[in-house]
């Protein structure tokens, strides 16, 4: 289709402010979403992408307002359907960098089906899952990631349901990229967003996000100053899984599970500590890392899994190119006259 010829923008000169739209940001004061937006605006200039080639898609929820606050193309859609809309955008124009913003209810409850199938197809989009373990926009009902027993407006006697772990669901759906970060660490968020953009295939980034109104301090064990050294494990590919003050603790295998050990105690040395391999196609260890929860274990942060695999859009493009090279029918006229025809004179 005819496109308007307008000069391509020069990305080299773009700064964080160039990615802010003229809209007043309308999240609650103190909401974790502000930090996520800031981290994204900070990361975007470094990705080397033109503003016009970025599309932010979202469903419904507090998180879903995200596209309005960016100066790129944006589409705020309907509850849970973001991955399906983003799939259509990407397949229609594979050159675009497509981002999809979801909350835990949007991704794992009403949109669970689209979420797992996007991951399964490994289509090259980036999904940011803002996980605050609560429904915010609808004013405080429990979500599929809420802890069992949580008292909310729809569970005055405590939630009966076992929570989903976003990472476990994702790995079960054969995700090729899963990272986890927290809304209190802008630097880590920016770095992970850039890594997600680099990855070819569906990238899922879970952001542990605080809802100051309906579920305040739900991630406090992980983010709080007093425990964060002991409860945050920052994973880096090729580096040992060390954490704690002075990196004195580490993870090692014990039977079919993981255990926390302290360097120097019981003869433990750094050589005993597992080295993170985000690129291992076997997801077994990634699953174990994803499952860890404080206080028994630290929360794994960083890129937990980043495995190279064919993407749906690349495979489609090669099928299209291959079919077009070999096609006998190249136009509708060819098609209408294909097969059996007869002439009436």
């Amino acid at each position: 289709m005819a496109e308007r010829a307008v000069e391509a923008s020069d990305n080299a000169t773009l700064t964080k402010d160039d990615f802010a739209s003229d809209q007043i940001v309308r999240w609650c004061p103190g909401c974790g979403d502000y930090a996520i937006l800031s981290a994204m605006q900070k990361a975007l200039p470094d990705m080397g992408l033109a503003r016009e080639d970025l599309v932010f898609v979202s469903g419904i929820g507090c998180a879903a307002r995200f596209p309005y606050y960016l100066s790129t193309y944006g589409f705020h859609t309907i509850h849970g359907r973001g991955p399906a809309i983003a799939t259509g955008v990407k397949l229609a124009n594979p050159k675009l960098s497509v981002w999809e913003i979801q909350g835990d209810g949007d991704a794992l409850a009403i949109g669970g089906n689209h979420f797992i199938h996007a991951l399964r197809r490994n289509i090259d989009i980036n999904i940011l899952l803002f996980n605050n373990e609560i429904y915010g926009l609808t004013k405080g009902q429990y979500s599929p990631t809420s802890q069992q027993g949580l008292i909310t407006r729809s569970t005055p006697y405590g939630s009966l349901e076992r929570p989903f772990s976003a990472g476990e669901v994702a790995l079960g759906a054969q995700a090729t990229f899963f990272a986890r970060t927290i809304d209190t660490n802008v630097k880590l968020m920016s770095a992970i967003f850039s890594e997600a953009e680099q990855h070819r295939g569906t990238s899922l980034v879970e952001v542990l996000q605080n809802c100051i109104i309906y579920n305040d301090k739900t991630h406090a064990l992980v983010t709080g100053k007093e425990h964060r050294d002991d409860y945050q494990l920052h994973l880096e590919h090729g580096k040992p899984m060390l954490f704690g003050k002075d990196s004195s603790k580490g993870l090692r295998l014990k039977g079919l599970g993981l255990e926390v050990v302290t360097l120097g105690e019981d003869g433990v040395t750094e050589a005993d500590i597992l080295v993170h391999d985000a690129r291992d196609p076997n997801p077994t260890l990634h699953q174990m890392l994803v499952r860890m929860r404080p206080p028994e274990m630290p929360m794994a942060l960083g890129v937990i899994r980043a495995v190279a695999a064919p993407t749906y859009d690349q495979e489609l493009a090669s099928q299209l190119a291959d079919s077009q090279a070999r096609a006998k029918i190249r136009s509708v006229k060819d098609l209408l006259h294909s097969g059996e025809t007869w002439e009436v004179s």
Partner: peptide
């Protein structure tokens, strides 16, 4: 061969929504 993307979606909702995404693009 004619460049058609015929996408079998995971459900009816994804079908209409991916078409809307493609239309947006």
């Amino acid at each position: 061969g004619m460049g058609v993307v015929a996408f079998q979606a995971e459900d009816e909702i994804a079908a209409v929504c991916s078409a809307i995404g493609a239309s947006f693009a």
